[in-house]
Nucleic acid binder design. Structure first.
Length: 269
DNA sequence: GACAACCTGACC
DNA sequence: GGTCAGGTTGTC
């Protein structure tokens, strides 16, 4: 599930209810989801108080005093704050008890993970140390240099978290369509104008997606269990064979860089 | 680069 | 039965 807009939405919703809440206890029902092991995880969690939620790329960072809880949702992870009377989501594998309220981690496909890291070790964490810049932190000139020094296809490059942090399959396809760039185009062949256009649409798409609470294509929900609405604005993602919004040519679906990819073969060059 | 692996589905 | 799935990592 979550790409940058979804994780950012989870961060913002949890920011409203989580800070100041104390972890009274942790129930880990699926041990493989926590690192390095259940005993260490529970010991490092118990008694800690949540601070102001942060995010880097697709990683959610929940400060707990001198350490921080890292959460990666991979494809189907959910983190939902529950009031005392509400019931937990399906596939809940871990629950933090917060003096009546609870914070539940659910994950249908069980690919996500949670880990508590000392703040002084955060920068060196494998999931954070090699992250590329976020799209919002870039200028057109730098992005142009980044792109034109790479001999890779745009689709593969934009999905690479070491190149650029935060984009996933949905937002790469939506951005490339809006920028009228073909997913199989070699990055090094972009003109400065094309690079500038691509950066601008990536930023626009992410901002719009955050403003509408992210994309709920399958089972994504925010930190309060609510679905997003950006899927209603998708122009190509999951629009196989439907007419292109610009030229009416049927949207093509094919594997590019190992991922299902949607694009207009006429508009995108 | 391509592919399998990690899992549990939904949908045709 | 087959295909596909908001991600990442490890292997040829």
């Amino acid at each position: 599930m979550p790409e940058l807009p979804e994780v950012e939405t989870i961060r913002r919703t949890l920011a409203r209810c989580l800070p100041g809440k104390k972890i009274e206890d942790v129930e880990v029902r699926l041990p493989k989801l926590v690192r390095p092991d259940v005993a260490t995880f529970v010991e490092n969690a118990r008694g800690r108080v949540f601070g102001e939620p942060q995010r880097k790329g697709k990683v959610l960072i929940l400060p707990l005093g001198e350490s921080s809880l890292l959460v990666h949702f991979r494809l189907t992870g959910q983190l939902v704050f529950l009031s005392p009377e509400s019931s937990e989501p399906a596939y809940t594998h871990l629950v933090f008890a917060l003096n009546g309220a609870r914070l539940a981690y659910a994950d249908l496909r069980q690919f996500g993970w949670l880990e508590i890291v000392r703040n002084e070790d955060l920068a060196e964490h494998p999931s954070l140390v090699s992250l590329g810049p976020e799209p919002f932190d870039l200028e057109a000139e730098e992005f142009y240099v980044m792109l034109t020094s790479r001999r890779r296809r745009l689709k593969a490059l934009l999905l690479d978290q070491q190149f650029l942090a935060g984009l996933g399959n949905i937002y790469v396809d939506e951005s490339l369509f809006r920028a009228r760039l073909h997913p199989e185009r070699e990055a090094a062949t972009l003109s400065f104008e094309e690079a500038r256009r691509l950066l601008r649409v990536v930023q626009d798409v992410l901002r719009e997606a955050i403003a509408t609470g992210g994309s709920s294509v399958r089972n994504y929900v925010d930190g309060e269990g609510r679905e997003g609405r950006f899927q209603e604005r998708h122009l190509v993602y999951q629009h196989r064979e439907r007419p292109c919004p610009r030229c009416k040519t049927p949207i093509v679906y094919k594997q590019v860089a190992g991922r299902g990819t949607y694009f207009c073969p006429r508009c995108q060059r």
